[in-house]
Amino acid sequence: MAKTILVVDDSASLRQVVSIALKGAGYDIIEACDGKDALGKLNGQKIHLIISDVNMPNMDGITFVTEAKKKAEYKFTPVIMLTTEAGEDKKQAGQAAGAKAWVVKPFQPAQMLTAVSKLVLP
């Protein structure tokens, strides 16, 4: 059974490229364009991994992860946060929210696939 990954980023093209790379490796992908949209998509179905940008309109990534971890079904779901080098403070806030894995933007699709594979193999 394919593992399901929720990709949250306000850039449609980023989501598309990440989706192409991850689908190609055998994962199922659900896309969301910001934290609010993503939270709405956490409706009880099994999610094996969340990839989320930090800086997004409507609801930022850290608020989203904090909210997601409050739901029993997603309490222990691993999170990869997308960050910029400059985001040290954000990183700490994210760690506190339960996001332990970080990938620095910009990244190549292969880098993302590597990071994802470490946490969840397809």
Binding site: S11, N55, M56, L82, K105, P106, P109
Partner: peptide
């Protein structure tokens, strides 16, 4: 909003390997 626009373009450009956009946008960001 301004920051995020630059940030998002940089992030996506990186995925496509568009280094000339990444390096320029990086400084603006």
């Amino acid at each position: 909003d301004i920051f995020r626009a630059a940030h998002t373009i940089k992030g996506s450009a990186g995925l496509f390997g568009l280094d000339y956009i990444v390096s320029f946008t990086h400084v603006a960001e």
